[in-house]
Design a protein around this nucleic acid. Sequence first.
DNA 1: CCTTTATCTAAAGTCACTGTAGCTTATCAA
DNA 2: TTGATAAGCTACAGTGACTTTAGATAAAGG
Lengths: 142, 142
Amino acid sequence: MLAIGTLSRKTGTKVQTIRYYEQIGLMNEAGRTSGGQRRYYEKDLDRLAFIRHSRQLGFSLDSIRELLDLSDNPAQSCAEADSIARRQLRQVEQRIKRLQALKKELKRMVAECDGESVAECKVLEVLRDHSECLTNHDEIGA
Amino acid sequence: MLAIGTLSRKTGTKVQTIRYYEQIGLMNEAGRTSGGQRRYYEKDLDRLAFIRHSRQLGFSLDSIRELLDLSDNPAQSCAEADSIARRQLRQVEQRIKRLQALKKELKRMVAECDGESVAECKVLEVLRDHSECLTNHDEIGA
DNA sequence: CCTTTATCTAAAGTCACTGTAGCTTATCAA
DNA sequence: TTGATAAGCTACAGTGACTTTAGATAAAGG
Ligand SMILES: [Zn+2]
Ligand SMILES: [Zn+2]
Ligand SMILES: [Zn+2]
Ligand SMILES: [Zn+2]
């Protein structure tokens, strides 16, 4: 039986995060000692490792919930899991695209300013006026 | 004098977001009509446009606050503003790097699975075990 | 037995908004 | 002038994925 701190160390997850996963039903409710402390089996460790690795690959907790559900029924086809991964891939590609446009614009801003007064700062000038931009931006936070 | 909806339309900002910016002190408190509705000057419109454009370029509200403060004192050097922009550039480059590693890993996962049962799904296999990965991942959400 | 370390709960804070409920004000045509 | 409609108001809750804090209790080692 593993204490929560052991799971924490073995997976690089904060203790509070593990409790949070329990709270939202992503981890099963753990058994307790007579004193009320959580105790885990190896399979809980595996599940947590799955969750954390999926998070590192950028999957949302909702996607991870689906993937875990699928993983629990080994007989069925994996089409669903693959489509979740492909969706994730598309999202990552989208984000890269957007960030590359930002990078280009930021690079230009920084390069064009020669560090004179604020009144002539190219950086601030661009921020004041999008028509100075070469690319157009999509929605904020996309 | 402009109503809040006019600012909203002209800058593509939701009305609630404008009120939120006032609440956190990013926009000045607007004047009011006798009935209590907000009314704005052109300079408020300019400020909001600056904020939104900066957000589109990925700057945090804290950075934008600094940039606005600088912008209000045209005499001083723009070194500070330029350094904020360079910091932002570095952050964007970092995120691109991380996302490109994710993309590579996701692509491989998706490509290697031939869509048989969940038990043999390559996607799920990789998620279960990081040692199947070719790259290592930095912190979650970085 | 005592101290230190680990764990517990509950609640608030983070970022940058978005959404909702239930009102009140402004504007314009009839 | 009335009355419909659009636009605005406040206050608060919700989003995602946690992190932080405070204050209390449990476990483990010497
Ligand atoms: Zn400059
Ligand atoms: Zn622009
Ligand atoms: Zn598969
Ligand atoms: Zn991995």
